[in-house]
């Protein structure tokens, strides 16, 4: 039983670390604010969530487990809300997502190309 718990918690910790690292890469490499906000949200939801779950399996007694659950709850709620506020503010300030520009350009190109063919 203890071995099984160890194995499962190792796997979840590894998955959480993987999410954290990929999200860190995403924060540096993503093209605009919205995609970077998505990467930042990934750290707090999947990365931290998996790590907390892994730690929860290692908790020696129920008091520490409850504290971990509370901490994760607050982290999830507050940090995701702050990322939402960031993206919302940027949106209100009038920044368009770069990907949307690309999609728009593609559609314009298609419209330009399609009338001659008809």
């Amino acid at each position: 039983m203890a071995l099984l718990l160890d194995i499962v918690s190792w796997i979840t910790l590894m998955i959480g670390s993987f999410f954290c690292i990929t999200a860190g890469v995403g924060l540096l490499r993503m093209p605009d604010v919205y995609t970077r906000a998505h990467a930042g949200g990934m750290i707090d939801s999947m990365g931290a969530g998996m790590i907390f779950f892994g730690l929860l399996l290692q908790a020696p007694d129920y008091l520490i487990a409850i504290k971990l659950v509370f901490t994760f709850f607050f982290l999830l709620v507050t940090s995701l809300a702050s990322i939402h506020a960031l993206a919302q503010t940027v949106n209100v300030a009038g920044v368009n997502p770069k990907l949307a520009n690309i999609v728009n350009r593609l559609e314009k190109n298609r419209q330009k190309e399609s009338p001659p063919s008809n």
Binding site: F74, T78, A81, Q88, V92
Partner: peptide
């Protein structure tokens, strides 16, 4: 009107 999510989260968090 724009702060619906923030308000909900604040309501959830302030008392704790």
């Amino acid at each position: 009107r724009k702060k619906v999510v923030l308000k909900e989260v604040a309501d959830l968090v302030i008392a704790p």
